[in-house]
Design a protein around this nucleic acid. Structure first.
Lengths: 122, 122
DNA sequence: CATCTATATTGACGGATATCGATCCAGATG
DNA sequence: CATCTGGATCGATATCCGTCAATATAGATG
């Protein structure tokens, strides 16, 4: 009951897969896969990398833009980028000397939708 | 340029704190705090616990409802519940012999909002 | 008070992971 | 082809974390 509105259909979301976490129990396989994605987000450096890439001009950034803001070594940055890429949160491409990374919005949207409670509060 | 629409204001979102990850670079302190929350979600058992609690009748479940569906021991379940509670995703209360847990929707909404890209694609 | 049940805490152990220095690889450039 | 630079990979190390068995605590009940 109450003022529950139908969610606005967001056409910018390519694939809003699966039922939200709070609606029905997550099965074991789904939990394992989802945990892997959250694990990739469960590190301060990786979160900042993701945020830096996404908010960078043009929606992409080369590694040379990403090593400066951190106290960790270049191999460590490279490692974190690999982790983010392996779970499908970002992708990359080499252009000449530099390698560019960008965020895959569909992946973030999927997580956002999974965490969305969107329920009427009593 | 392009067809960038203003984001639809979602009144079902209680406290949409902070700027989404993709809008501006996350600062170090924010990243550390956010990473702690994602770390709590970065485990299959904890994800299923959260989902089980949220989708349980009445929106809450006692530990006795939660130990059955898993292959892990009772102390392990207790440990995972503590982790989820420490980051503010769930809360609990003792009633007589049993301890009941429930999900704090505002915490999930905050994460959902942070991951929401809500941007026009070129 | 003794005991039983539900849950939490403790301590230990093994596997995962963040980090580094060293090195390797790929393009660019002379 | 030699060399330089941006970035990835490798191997080692230290720390973190999920798990368990054992034990402790808190209500309920006899």
């Amino acid at each position: 009951m109450s003022i529950k509105k139908l969610p606005v259909i967001d056409l910018t979301t390519p694939v809003a897969c699966c039922s939200p976490l709070v609606r029905e129990p997550l099965d074991e396989a789904g939990a394992t896969e989802l945990a892997a994605t959250f694990k990739a987000l469960a590190d301060p450096v990786r979160l900042r990398l993701l945020s830096l890439i996404a908010s960078h001009a043009g929606g992409e950034a080369c590694v040379c833009d990403l090593t400066g803001p951190f106290d960790v070594s270049q191999p460590t940055i490279s490692h974190h980028l690999k982790v983010l890429k392996q779970v499908g949160l970002i992708d990359s491409e080499r252009r000449g000397t530099w390698v560019y990374y960008w965020v895959l919005p569909a992946a973030l949207e999927r997580l956002s939708a999974l965490l969305n409670t969107a329920e009427a509060r009593a």
